[in-house]
C-alpha cells in the first residue's frame, strides 16, 4: 500500500524536528516521542494549525496524519517547516508521485502564509498534501522546481498571487499577472 509506505517515509522527517528546534539536549527525544506526535490527531487542519503556531515559537508540527478521504478528498496531510519541504518532495519523487498543484492561503489573522502542495500517484489513488506555514512579513521557502519541473509555473503563480518567494527558483517573474505587476491580488488585504 502506497499510503502506509509514504506515511512511514514522511514520518522520518519529523524525528529530526525537535532536535532542530532545541539543541543537543533534544538528542534524548528518540523515536518514541516522534511516534507519539505522529499519532496525535488534530481535528481540523488549517485554522488550528494557524492559531496553534501563532501562540509561540516553532512548535514542532505533528507527523503526517491520515485524513478521512471521503470527507476531505485527500489521504495524507503533512504539515512541515519550510526547510523540510525539499526533503519531503524528494521522498515523493522517489516513489513516483506527480505534482498536482501548488498554492497558497493567506491566514491574515495569524499573520501567516500557508503554502500547500498537492501530490497524487498515477498507479494508485493516494493524495498527499504537504503544507508549510511561513511568516507573512517575510514569506520564503525553497523551490522544488529542480525536482519537479512542473513546479516552476505553479511557484511563479503562487508568487504572483501571494508574494511568496521560492528561493533558488530560476525565473520568479510574473507569469499570469502583467510583467510589471508589484501587487499580490490573493492577499486578504489587497485592495484593487
Amino acid at each position: 500500500m502506497m499510503l502506509a509506505k509514504i506515511k512511514e517515509a514522511l514520518a522520518e522527517l519529523y524525528e529530526e524536528i525537535p532536535a532542530a528546534a532545541e539543541t543537543a539536549a533534544a538528542e534524548a527525544v528518540p523515536e518514541e516521542a516522534a511516534a507519539e506526535q505522529a499519532d496525535a490527531a488534530i481535528p481540523e487542519a488549517p485554522e488550528e494549525a494557524g492559531t496553534e503556531e501563532e501562540a509561540e515559537e516553532p512548535v514542532a508540527p505533528p507527523g503526517p496524519k491520515e485524513t478521512d478521504y471521503v470527507a476531505t478528498g485527500y489521504h495524507l496531510d503533512t504539515a512541515l517547516p519550510p526547510e523540510k519541504i525539499v526533503a519531503a518532495v524528494e521522498i515523493l519523487n522517489r516513489e513516483d508521485f506527480f505534482l498536482e498543484t501548488i498554492t497558497g492561503v493567506d491566514w491574515i489573522d495569524a499573520q501567516q502564509l500557508e503554502v500547500v502542495y498537492d501530490f497524487n500517484h498515477f498507479d494508485e489513488n493516494c493524495r498527499v498534501v504537504l503544507r508549510s506555514m511561513l511568516d507573512r512579513s517575510k514569506p520564503e521557502i525553497p523551490t522544488i522546481s529542480d525536482i519537479y519541473q512542473g513546479a516552476n509555473w505553479h511557484e511563479r503563480e503562487t508568487h504572483d498571487f501571494f508574494g511568496i518567494v521560492f528561493t533558488g527558483h530560476p525565473n520568479l517573474e510574473p507569469l499570469l499577472l502583467p510583467e510589471d505587476a508589484d501587487f499580490h491580488p490573493l492577499l486578504k488585504d489587497f485592495k484593487a
Binding site: E44, A45, P46, E47, G73, E100, V105, D118, R127
Partner: peptide
C-alpha cells in the same frame, strides 16, 4: 464546515481539481 477539501474530475483535457478552504461562511476563504 471549516476545513479544506479537494475534488478532482476528469475534464476533457485532464484532471481538473478544486481545492476549497472554508471558514464556515457562505463564501470561500480560498
Amino acid at each position: 464546515p471549516k476545513g479544506d477539501y479537494y475534488q478532482a474530475v476528469e475534464a476533457a483535457r485532464g484532471s481538473f481539481g478544486v481545492r476549497l478552504v472554508s471558514d464556515g461562511t457562505n463564501t470561500a476563504y480560498r
